[in-house]
């Protein structure tokens, strides 16, 4: 299933109203080559159901893990990903770019 970025917030709201914990991840900045531009979003719920994307599939897994913590404590975080990251091989960007992602809980 694909979704327009414009529709993702609505779907996140629907999931929340249905009683699920939901987090929204938004690309806030990119440097170098990066498949998704600033403003791209992904939503994820407590069961790990996800929609949308923030990269070409490189960092989504790591974002989901962070999103789970943010659903617990409600504190939004700004995440950095790039080839200089310690975990480059695990969650780095194969394309060699860098990006920043803001993750927040739907309240």
């Amino acid at each position: 299933m694909t979704s327009r970025d414009e529709d993702l917030l609505q779907i996140a709201a629907d999931w929340k109203r249905a009683g699920n914990d939901v987090a929204i991840a938004t690309v806030t900045a990119t440097w170098g080559s990066s498949p998704r531009q600033a403003g791209s979003q992904m939503i994820v719920d407590r069961d790990g159901r996800m929609l949308g994307s923030v990269s070409g599939g490189c960092v989504e897994g790591a974002v989901v893990r962070e999103a789970m913590e943010i659903m617990d404590d409600g504190k939004p975080r700004l995440l950095d990903f790039g080839i200089t990251n310690e975990q480059a091989w695990e969650v780095g960007l194969a394309c060699g770019g860098k990006l920043q992602i803001y993750v927040e809980r739907v309240e």
Partner: peptide, 11 residues
């Protein structure tokens, strides 16, 4: 993000 903000954006 508050639900009310999402609703306002939709409107």
């Amino acid at each position: 993000m508050k639900l009310a903000l999402i609703e306002e954006l939709a409107a």
